[in-house]
């Protein structure tokens, strides 16, 4: 009885169902979609949706509570008469033009220095990297205290060194020094990160090149200039693209160090987006400013794509 029953049961349960090709395809698509769904749904609702909304909103008037009205190109024309926008645009470009090459040089220098055989090399690398992961709010407040124009240790030291009190830099509190302060802070905070990328690039350079340079009697400086720098070309390109995009988006450190001031001396694009949206509740115009930021980042990305393809 038992045997007979098993005989009867097994084939039905185990016999593979003959699925048509279409059914099989459908099933594998369903499986694949079930893998993607948890992430994609979140991505669709919270990233893709808002992005499309942002493009539409740039051509609307909206204060966030009343009805949305179509604005055509109003927001676009307003960019040209908005003094704050023009200032923010230039400040962003100035910030980028100074901080990108400066950070690049510092991180390359650090990488070359810490690529040599040193005792405690890993400790030094970690120390350089730490500002990058340290919480911004904490380091910004300590930075502002150290660079406090009246009492901070930096100005005290400068005073001791004989700088006339009238000529002491006002750092974050003065129109002419605020941008310098913000840039210095940015370099200090991020150069460890790019140093690590450069270190990876340095390790990819074939030692034979240096041996060949040694045979030719090159000194350290020549080896750096004629072997290291050209060999690091792709890394430098990558780092400069990333730095440029980061600089276009700069906001947190400015909010925390200077709040865009004094006056508008450190007002940057994202700060303007933030102000127009969450202070003035002019969501349409704020999206138009954000669109400018997007176009700037897009330009850099397209240039990067073109250039890397040519290689």
């Amino acid at each position: 009885m038992v045997v007979a029953r098993e005989d009867f049961d097994i084939p039905v349960a185990v016999r593979p169902k003959r699925l048509t090709k279409r059914q099989r395809q459908r099933r594998s698509t369903l499986v694949a979609l079930s893998f993607i769904a948890p992430n994609f749904l979140g991505f669709l609702i919270f990233t893709l949706g808002p992005i499309l909304f942002a493009f539409a909103l740039a051509f609307m008037h909206w204060d966030g509570s009343n009805a949305i009205t179509f604005a055509g190109l109003d927001n676009f024309w307003r960019l040209f008469s908005d003094r704050s926008f023009i200032t923010a645009f230039w400040n962003t470009l100035i910030y980028t033009a100074v901080s990108v090459p400066a950070t690049l040089c510092c991180s390359l220098g650090l990488a070359v220095l810490l690529n040599q055989k040193l005792k405690g090399r890993n400790f030094f690398r970690a120390a350089m990297f730490f500002p990058y992961v340290a919480s911004l709010v904490a380091v910004a407040v300590v930075w502002n205290m150290i660079f406090n124009p009246e009492m901070g240790p930096v100005n005290m030291l400068l005073y001791e060194l004989g700088v006339d009190p009238k000529n002491l830099p006002g750092w974050a509190a003065s129109n002419s020094w605020a941008m310098v302060t913000v840039i210095l802070f940015g370099i200090w905070k991020s150069m460890g990160y790019y140093m690590v990328i450069y270190l990876a690039g340095l390790q990819g350079i074939s030692p034979e090149l240096y041996e060949a340079a040694d045979l030719d009697g090159a000194n350290g400086w020549q080896k750096f200039w004629y072997v290291t720098v050209p060999q690091l070309g792709p890394t430098t390109f990558f780092v400069s693209v990333m730095l440029t995009i980061q600089s276009f988006k700069v906001f947190d450190q400015i909010m925390l160090l200077t709040e865009g001031g004094p006056g508008t001396s450190t007002l940057v694009l994202v700060y303007h987006v933030y102000n127009e949206a969450f202070i003035s509740w002019d969501l349409g115009y704020s999206s138009m400013v954000a669109l400018v930021l997007f176009l700037m980042v897009l330009t850099v990305t397209v240039v990067q794509f073109r250039l890397t393809r040519e290689d």
Binding site: F53, K249, S286
Partner: peptide, 8 residues
Amino acid sequence: PWQVYMVP
């Protein structure tokens, strides 16, 4: 950049 669509 997230900053582009943070408002919407």
